[in-house]
Design a protein around this nucleic acid. Structure first.
Lengths: 245, 245
DNA sequence: GTCAAGCATATGTAAGGACAAAGGGACATG
DNA sequence: CATGTCCCTTTGTCCTTACATATGCTTGAC
């Protein structure tokens, strides 16, 4: 129990609270902190690690936000029961697949610059008629088609090359251009696929599909991307963790 | 611009950071802080309100977590563009409907105590064979059927009366019993409805439905509830806000 | 005129102290 | 036996201070 923590690296650019949070997370994953077990109290922990209480609290808070720990005043901090399911981060389907060891593939169906109109202009918060890049891609996992992704991007992203989209995910491309994506609002629903969608996705006509609309904003609050995606319900589901504070 | 903030109530049990966060949120809703506008810097704000910077930071952080604000080091804090959609909190469908001015109705289809088995026991983290309350309810909005809700609850909630479920939502009932729900993990997908589901929901046979599995944990990390819900895709969708930190 | 260094500005990280409030158990009291 | 009170533990809130670091603009050298 005393060797739960490795030493901290105070010279590292990685914040201390983050290092501590990762170590606790690992301890939970490795079963050193089984579900339901109580952590030492904040003061002792901070003391043992040579940290201040605020820093220790911040580390714990990060895991509370992730849904791994729960705190109760006067009682302590405990590990949540139930299997750990990795909650969705701000990632794209491409990243998710790659992280799971699958081989994501992309076919670009549409790649054109068009004037923004109607809902696209509204969602991207750009004037009607301003140029936006319109994309439509078929995303596969290995040989299996998985989703049809339709996206619109405002300036200055309208120059993204078609070739670069074949190899990398949209989020990856944006990140490599220095875009810091911060907030995404998603609306998840379901509907019957159109004849064309079902054909692309190798589903029977009229199969149920999972739909997702998403607007992503960068660290200046500007809209970076708006998209309408449809997923094969037989192969895909969204996982969400909600935390009350 | 100077009268953005009312006075704070330091004698109130509502934390100061929370009071400030609510005031900023209201200012955004009322358009006093339009999308893209920059807030004063933290130090000035804290100064003007007679608060310390950590407290001010915490108020801002709360709104960043909600997806209303974005911060950039060296630059400042700005209001996110795009219409504000209230993100899902840890509430039930019943609460959501009531909050939107609709009149939620419930028909209890199944209400029985059964021994936990298989997935139910695993998800609730209780031993196989221990008693659990099994519920199946049809949830309506006004006269329209909206969802079929199937839930399992472990001890000590197996004594929830059938009559109480007709009037109030499950979350409301649990809260009134002093249960502090903290973490919920959801898995959202889609599939074709069964013949029975479609009949209950007044949909055509084989209509696409939105599915949700959810496990809710209380402030001790124990499982409070596990459920499988199906929603009419034509009337319902989930909204989720993701924030990167 | 162009580019780089430097400065001002803002948020990010961290320490350390103080008091408040809730939970739970021990204990006294009815 | 039940119930209320006190106390201990633990998290919640709040203040003050200091330094680190990313950004964007200005200034100065070439």
């Amino acid at each position: 129990m005393d060797d739960l923590f490795d030493d901290l690296d105070r010279s590292s650019p990685v914040p201390l609270y983050f290092q501590v949070a990762r170590q606790i997370e690992r301890a939970i994953e490795l079963g050193k902190l089984p579900p339901g077990s109580r952590l030492e109290n904040e003061i002792h922990l901070a003391d043992r690690l040579g940290l201040s209480r605020p820093t220790m609290r911040r580390a714990i808070q990060q895991l509370v936000d992730k849904g791994l720990l729960v705190r109760k005043r006067g009682v302590g901090t405990q590990v949540v029961h139930g299997q750990v399911t990795r909650p969705v981060e701000l990632t794209s389907l491409h990243d998710d697949l790659a992280a799971n060891g699958q081989r994501p593939g992309t076919t670009v169906l549409v790649h054109e610059v068009v004037p923004a109109a109607g809902e696209v202009a509204a969602r991207l918060a750009v004037p009607e008629g301003s140029p936006v890049l319109h994309l439509r891609r078929l995303r596969c996992s290995g040989e299996e088609p998985l989703a049809v992704l339709e996206n619109w991007l405002p300036e200055p992203f309208t120059d993204i090359a078609e070739a670069s989209l074949a190899e990398r995910g949209l989020y990856q491309l944006l990140r490599s251009r220095g875009v810091g994506m911060r907030v995404a609002r998603q609306r998840i629903g379901a509907r019957r696929g159109t004849a064309e969608e079902c054909q692309l996705l190798a589903e029977h006509r009229g199969s149920p599909l999972l739909t997702m609309e998403r607007a992503t904003h960068d660290d200046s609050g500007r809209a970076v991307e708006w998209g309408r995606h449809v997923y094969r319900a037989s192969r895909y589901a969204f996982e969400v963790t909600l935390v009350d504070r």
